[in-house]
Design a protein around this nucleic acid. Structure first.
Lengths: 218, 218
DNA sequence: CATAGGTGTGACCGGTCGGTAACTATTCGG
DNA sequence: CCGAATAGTTACCGACCGGTCACACCTATG
C-alpha cells in the first residue's frame, strides 16, 4: 500500500526557532502562535494534503514544531483534533459569507454573481476541494463525531445560499440554490478526479447559465 | 481514532460451504465463483463500505471466503487490488451506457432523460457515491496507480455524456454535459455529507431544468 | 527565590497494517 | 492414476499506528 511516506523534512519551516528573535527591551517580536493554534492550522493543512487517515498524529505534532504529548494535552484524541480542524475551517467559511455580504451591499443579484466568481477562484487556486466534504467521503464509520460538524456546516451553507437566491428574486430559489450547491461540490470532486481540464473547467459558465435560466421575466 | 473495527462476523455469508452442494451425477450446482472473482467483488463492496484505507487485505480475504495468501497470489499488492476493483466498477459502468443506448433507440432526447432518471435512481438506491470519485478523494498520494484508472473512467464518462447531449441536439452540448456531470458528482458527495435531505434531493429537477434551458428553440 | 503550569523528550504499550515463508490439502487435466 | 497447478493454513516479519508514562525543562508570576 506504500504506507504514508510523509516527507521527513517537516522541520525547519521558518528558520531556526523564530521564538528566539527578541528586541533589546525583551519584547518578543514575530512571536509564533500558541502550540494549540499551530497544531490546528498545521493539522488542517496536512489533512488536506494527505487525507485524514493518511497522516499520523506524530507527524502533525512535529510539523507544528511541537510534540505528540503536547498535542494530546490539548486534544483528547485524533478524532477530537479532526473535529476541531473541521470547525476551524467552518469558521473561516462563515467569515467568507460575511465578507461577501459586505462587498455587495443592497445588491443581492451582484452578491449572487460574486459568490459564483469567488467559488470559481477558489476552484482555480486550491488543489484540494472542500475539506468538510472530503472528510465526509473519507470517514464512513457512522457515529463518527465529525459527521455532526460536517452536517452543521453544510446545513448553514445551504441556508445562506438559499437566502442569497431568494433575495436575488429568482424564480424557484430553492431549486437554484441546490443546483449551485451541487455544481460547486461536483466541480471540486471532479477536479480531484479529472484535473483542471475536466467538467470543472466550465463551472463558472454552468453557474451563470443556471442563474440566467431562473431569472424572473422582469 | 477508533481504528477499523470491522465486524468479525464476515464468515458464513451464504450457508455452510455452498461449494459442497452437488448433484448425484457429480456435476456441481451453484458452483461459487473462482477465488479471484470473489476477491474482486468482495473488495469492491468493502472498499465502498469502509473506504480503501479503512479495510485491510486480511479482512477482505476472509470476507471473500479465502485467505490472504491466495489474495497475494492473484494481486501483487493492495494497490493492485484497488486498481482491479476500480477497473471492475468501470466495466460495469460501461455496460450501463450500452443498456441505456439499447433502451432508447433512435431517440437521443429520450436517452438523455433516461440517463437523468437512471442516475436519480442510483442516487436513491446506493448509500455511497461513485467509487471512482471517492477513490480520487481518498488517495491523495500523487503517482498512485489508481489515478490512471480513475482518469480513464472519468474521461470515457465525459465523452459519452457529451455525445449524448450532442445527439440530442441541444445548444452548447459541451456546457450541458459538463453541467450534468457536475450535478451528478455533486449530488453524490452532497448526499454523503448531508444525507438524502440535502441538495441532492433536487438532483432530478435540477437536471431537467438544465436540459430544458439548453433546448434548441425548435 | 520559590512555585506552578505549560512545554519538550524519549521510551514504551498493545494493536494493526501490508506482505512473505513453508507446508499441506485439494482439484483437475492428461 | 499421477503430477502439476491452485488453494488453504499458520506463523511470522518489520513498520507504523494512536495513545500513555515519567521526568526534565522553561518561564511567568507571586
Amino acid at each position: 500500500m506504500s504506507r504514508s511516506l510523509v516527507h521527513k523534512s517537516a522541520k525547519s519551516v521558518s528558520g531556526p526557532k523564530p521564538a528566539d528573535i527578541r528586541l533589546e527591551d525583551g519584547l518578543s517580536v514575530q512571536a509564533r502562535a500558541a502550540p494549540r493554534d499551530r497544531i490546528v492550522s498545521t493539522a488542517c493543512e496536512l489533512f488536506r494534503q494527505h487525507g485524514i487517515r493518511g497522516i499520523g498524529v506524530d507527524a502533525i505534532a512535529v510539523a507544528a514544531e511541537t510534540n505528540k504529548m503536547t498535542l494530546y494535552r490539548h486534544f483528547g484524541s485524533k478524532d477530537d483534533l479532526v473535529c476541531e480542524t473541521l470547525r476551524f475551517t467552518s469558521e473561516k467559511a462563515a467569515a467568507f459569507w460575511d465578507e461577501l455580504e459586505a462587498a455587495h451591499p443592497n445588491d443581492p443579484m451582484a452578491r449572487l454573481h460574486g459568490w459564483v466568481a469567488a467559488k470559481a477562484k477558489c476552484l482555480a487556486d486550491e488543489r484540494f476541494g472542500c475539506d468538510l466534504a472530503n472528510a465526509a467521503v473519507e470517514l464512513k464509520e457512522q457515529g463518527h463525531p465529525a459527521h455532526a460538524v460536517i452536517e452543521n456546516f453544510k446545513l448553514a451553507q445551504r441556508r445562506r445560499l438559499e437566502d442569497l437566491c431568494r433575495e436575488a428574486g429568482v424564480s424557484e430559489p430553492e431549486l437554484l440554490s441546490d443546483t449551485l450547491a451541487m455544481l460547486m461540490e461536483g466541480a471540486q470532486v471532479s477536479k480531484l478526479a479529472t484535473g483542471s481540464e475536466g467538467p470543472s473547467m466550465r463551472f463558472l459558465r454552468a453557474c451563470e447559465a443556471a442563474i440566467a435560466s431562473f431569472r424572473q421575466p422582469a
